[in-house]
Amino acid sequence: MPADDASQPTGAPGAAFEAFLKGGEFRLQCCRACGRQIYYPRTVCHYCGSGDLQWLPASGRGFVYSTTIVRQKPDRGGDYNVAIIQLVEGARLLSRIVDVSPSDVRIDMPVVAIIREAGGVPQLLFRPSAGA
């Protein structure tokens, strides 16, 4: 990370990612050398090896790459969704599709990121959207 860039967080990338979420922002690192979007947070680009990474706002738009329903007894909270989301900027991540029945989540469905607190910790989740 260049020292002259005062707008960029310093320190551990995982902590920076969480700090952005706490502030209501979904940001991911992008590599200044190769331009690729990076997930999960890292100290070096896993595409080209550059250490010159910057935190940029992510659109949060993407689509469901794969999905499953984790079956759970109702008294333990019931069934829930786990999905892999392909973001339009290129990164792929695991999260949950919420605000929809787990049985209605489909591969290729357009989704958008939301930040919601879970046990005092802001969590990145996704909900269906009109179009990616």
């Binding site: 999960y40 984790v70 786990v82 999260s95």
Partner: peptide
């Protein structure tokens, strides 16, 4: 680390995601 918070019930969740994609 970045999947644990979503209560992925691994290993089966991961293999289920692969199976769902193969079916699709």
């Amino acid at each position: 680390p970045y999947e644990l918070a979503y209560h992925s019930r691994d290993p089966i969740t991961s293999y289920a995601l692969a199976a769902a994609r193969h079916m699709h």
